[in-house]
Amino acid sequence: MSEKTILEVKDLSTHYFTSKGVVQALDDANFTLSGGQSLGVAGESGCGKSTMAFSLLRMVQPPGRIVKGSINIGGMDVTKLDEKEARRKLRWQKVSMVFQGAMDIMTPVYTVGYQMMEPLKYHKDITGSKAEEVCMRYLDMVDLDPELFYRYPHELSGGQKQRIIIATALLLEPDVVILDEPTTALDVVVEARIMNDLKRLKKELDNAMIFITHDLSILAEISDDLAVMYAGWIVEIGPATKIYKDPKHPYTQKLIAAIPRLHKDIDRLEYIPGAPPELTNPPKGCRFHPRCEQAFDKCTQVEPKVHDVEGVKIKCHLYEED
């Protein structure tokens, strides 16, 4: 693992300006990633996980826009790029993404190879047999038969298609690969195999990976660092081992307790009562306070600051030092 910082996100905020008001989908996100490191992003639906990914790719659709902060990838501030530059310099070259339900994005009328070669052709001007060779090398890397290059998507299983999408995302050797729910639609056996391959690839290629999913048990398998998001905030971020063993933020505690265990008999599952807030009008103070069992007066009034407890950053009043 190299120690060089690849990605630095500072105070990143992305809002959607809808007719019903401003949706504060992402507020003040801060984190850094270095090569060979992976960040797992967890949270309920609508907590801003995907908005964060789209911001990194500069793909936030109007009426959404990055309102604040910076994203530094290899000395380039992504937030300052215009659309043309983002297309030429950023997407696929620096940051690539495997989208949710990615296996359905392949066109049925072209072969796998034709679709895989596209980024090579447009970004690197590699075509013909040379491109074929590169694609086949990457197919082999994700544990597929290189012959699949000549096949059509309907001839493949879901797991194979997902691997092809992952291979395509790696083609241009991007610094950061974002995987948004990469295994959600797959069976456990296929999922476990793909996770094994991703673990191996992460070490082999030494790039940074960002894993987005609502399934905390998968994240435990792959992430070095873990970020837990709630209502647009990163409420807890730090080394995954520490957070799983000793979650500090009340939300993380509940989220981890809600996972059903395979080898433990329990009478009741823990859950968080209520629903996440509307982000057009988030609760005053801490956004989690209406659902928090440990909330006190201050939580309803003042937005908590980020506190550092043994290397884990927690946005919660409980950890204030004084």
Partner: peptide, 14 residues
């Protein structure tokens, strides 16, 4: 194949 929420398995594959 079922993922269990136990960390410390980062450099090991089942």
């Amino acid at each position: 194949a079922v993922p269990e929420p136990e960390p410390d398995r980062l450099d090991r594959i089942k």
